[in-house]
Design a protein around this nucleic acid. Sequence first.
DNA 1: TCTGGGGTCCTAGGACCC
DNA 2: TCTGGGGTCCTAGGACCC
Length: 400
Amino acid sequence: MFLHIDCNAFFASCEVATRPGLGGKPVVVANDNENGGGIILALTAEAKALGLKRGIPLFQVRNLIKMNHVVICPVDHKKYRRISRQIMENVQRQEIVQDFVQYSVDEFFGTLPSDNPEELRHYATLVKQMIAQSTNIPVSCGLSQTYTLAKVATHYAKHYKGYDGVCLLMPENRQRALSLLDIADVWGIGRQNRAKLYALGIHTAQEFVNCDEKFLSSIFSVAGLNTWRELRGTPCIDLHRPTKQRSIMQSRTFVHMSDNLQTIEQDIRTYAASCAAKLRQQQSVCRTVQVFLSTNRHRQDLAQYRNSVGIHLPSPTADTPTIVKAAVSGLHSLYKEGFLFKQAGVILTNITEEEGMQLDLFSEPQDERHRKLMQITDALNKKFGDDTINFGLSPEKADS
DNA sequence: TCTGGGGTCCTAGGACCC
DNA sequence: TCTGGGGTCCTAGGACCC
């Protein structure tokens, strides 16, 4: 049986677990910036009870937050990654769950070697209790015959108190569970597919399951069909993924809209440099540097422009100056006067292993001095903090 | 005033080959 | 009436996820 473990309101739970005095209080985690922007990313049950929701901008609920003394915690991804790793290690050490994989910072999958409902429930409860004791993070567990069905089970474990955080979805109660589930709540059905299905009069997961396979394959891609098969009890999702990232991205929404190429360029340099550092951390090189630039899509009263460009490097590299230079040239090719920009970012793609990288016949071999410089920079930043040494962050020094 | 920031995979279509 | 017929590779963009 497949097991799915989902941390409840993970970011908010992490704050409550690590900051004394927050227990029982309404707490929201938001990517607040100095200007008061940002949106709610996670919230405790007490905050939900006040009518707050994930995804809404803080400025819309300032009064509600003030009146009810809601605690706002700035988002702290480092902390969440640390706690996530603890959970992972603790579950592995317990040796109950097999084929254990981390799916995201707050979700895990695995299998349990039993068909006996009571045994399964017992094991899942043990795992849940162990996580609560060792990290103070409440989790919900779902068990069923496929990953997708296990996530359905977790949905019920979360929303019905009677399950006490552990829900077992067996074939005999599957039809009932899927009849009560909105198709939009199924893993793999996003906004577009939901709209298509609603338009066809299909609203519940069971109605989707009842569809003819041939008919569905004319509307959906393989991903949609896999979801259909998984809901019918046939496992066909593989969660095995390469450990190294295949793209590395950094972007920001600006506090103030800007048409100033110089300041945007500064930001792009910073993003490109930190992407390059991440790339070296996983011992990889990239062949393409993508840059994107966008106006504020929420301001339909202003002229809109968004565009992106991919710069191909002559040979795969993780060299900061090379990547920064490419990103800057990409930005210059995108930039247009007469628009107020709100967001920009850099994405490194075409990532391969540093070992055995292919050199272009006509390109210069990687400058050994550059490599040394990168190594020393990374070592110093690791020892003394991320911003000890920066690269090419001021235009006049870009090529030095 | 004010609306994250990351990721993955798939597909359609164009360029190019013989 | 009727304008080859396969292939491969690459890329941008779209769909999904958290």
